[in-house]
Amino acid sequence: MSAGPSGFYGLGRTPSFWLLGYAFLMLFVGTTIPTPLYRVYQEELHFSSGVLTLIFAIYVLTLVPSLLAFGQISDRIGRRSVLLIGFSLAALAAITFASAQGLAALFLARAMQGVATGIVAGAGSAALAELEPSGNSRKASFVVTAANASGAALGPLFAGALAEYGPWPTRLPYLVLLVLMLPIVGLVGMRETVAKRRPLALEFRLPAVPAGIVKEFAFASAASFTVWASAAMYLTLAPGYVAMLLQLDNLAVGGVFVSLMLIASAAAQFLGRPLPFRTAMTAGLALLPLGLGSLILASPLHSAALLLVGTLVVGAGHGLGFLGAMVLVNKIAPETQRAEVTSSFYIVSYLGVALPAVAIGFGAQLVGLFAAVAIFSALVSLLAIVLLAASRRMVSVG
């Protein structure tokens, strides 16, 4: 046990680091539990695919203002108190989902998840970078991105299985999540990493990005936006697309394909750790058009194999692209503005989740699911190719 700057005794650096990593994992498990359940909600409450994607997107539409308001607060008052507020709100969101009886409750629970993630994202990423025992920012970046992808993969997997084969399909997954979140209470004893406090100032403003890192920051953010746009499609409409292609009405199968994409992402991040950030990002961007192309061809060819290949390739592209972007942001962010710069990065990344998801959801209403997925995939692939061309002109970061 050791004393942090606040004077309270708590966990040492290493236990604090890994407990916070676990907390991140559970946070992202919670955000993707609804994915295979959207079809159940849709059937029970009779809403369209456009409304479905709005429920998904309200997460980001509340997350971004939360980042704007809270992104720099932990730099002033410390990481621990901000993180405890964020994870408490995440638990309250799970309780709201578990007790939801109508559309309003679903929007409210999803909004609370967005605010919770916005509170935690910048402070948690900065804390992990500061708590890593050897000061290895690459390892801290890997823990953040792997917890993100692994947690997001586990959510649809166990939620789909519990909903298909267990009782209370729209409640049991959240009750299990709440049990898994119990160890997060230990963050009360987390080592505080902000030694010099400043007065609290809640400001609703864009987090600042220092002028000297704008070019590299813009490239990393654009790459992250692109890979998360492809992930957004899986997290909203993939279960329906899989059911249409395979002609299977099984919640677990839809959840499995979403999980496979995110498992491939986590595996790519693990295997890609030794790669330079530029190599990881460009490899991820190059894989996206290949994976999305396979996904589209799978439907007219009625090929489950192409669907599987496309899912794994998109996942690998997402993982490598996001890992490389996160490492670059951690490398260039000044120590005194790390949470603020990280929050700016997350704002752009999560806009890549929300805006395309809403567009493809309402597009599916207008032109049909297959056409909407095909058009969306073509646009994301084009953006990836443009960024690949731009990467050759990016200034190298030492």
Score class of each variant (00 low, 15 high):
S265C: 10
I77D: 05
F70H: 11
A159Y: 02
Y346W: 15
V143D: 01
A116Y: 01
G30S: 07
L290E: 15
V40H: 03
A286P: 08
F217Q: 05
A252M: 13
D75G: 14
L202T: 14
L351V: 08
P167T: 10
E43M: 04
G166R: 10
G71F: 03
M244C: 03
V214I: 15
A159D: 11
A222K: 01
A161E: 06
A286W: 09
P334M: 05
G160Y: 09
E192L: 05
L246I: 02
F97T: 02
A266D: 02
V253A: 11
Q365R: 11
R273L: 12
P207A: 08
V60Q: 15
S16D: 08
P356K: 10
L63R: 03
L288Q: 08
V29E: 03
Y38S: 09
P289D: 09
R198A: 12
V82I: 15
L206S: 10
A159S: 14
V82G: 03
L275Y: 05
V256E: 06
E43W: 02
T32H: 10
L19A: 11
V194C: 14
I95L: 11
L295P: 09
P36A: 13
S16E: 05
F107H: 03
E192M: 06
F362D: 02
L246H: 05
A305T: 15
F277C: 07
L19D: 03
V185W: 06
I184D: 00
G317R: 04
G10N: 04
R80Y: 03
A146E: 01
A359E: 06
L388W: 09
G310Y: 02
S377N: 02
L382H: 00
A229G: 07
Y9W: 14
F257Y: 13
L245A: 07
V373P: 00
K196W: 01
V348F: 00
V358E: 02
A147Q: 03
I58N: 10
V367F: 08
T32W: 00
L61H: 05
R273S: 04
H302P: 07
M281N: 01
L103Q: 13
P156K: 11
A364S: 15
A100W: 13
V143R: 00
S224P: 00
A195I: 04
A153F: 08
G21D: 07
S294P: 04
Y241F: 09
Q42H: 09
F362Y: 11
Q72S: 15
S16F: 04
R79W: 03
L37R: 08
I85M: 13
G160E: 13
G361F: 07
P276S: 09
R393M: 15
A378E: 05
L248I: 15
A152G: 14
L287M: 13
I55S: 05
A69N: 04
T32M: 01
L154V: 10
S6L: 12
A109N: 11
R171D: 04
P34H: 13
P274W: 09
G272Y: 14
L52R: 13
A57Q: 06
I263P: 00
R138G: 06
P65M: 08
Q269P: 08
S265W: 02
K139Y: 12
G78Y: 01
G284K: 04
F345A: 08
W168S: 12
A325N: 01
P36D: 15
L128I: 00
L366D: 01
T31H: 09
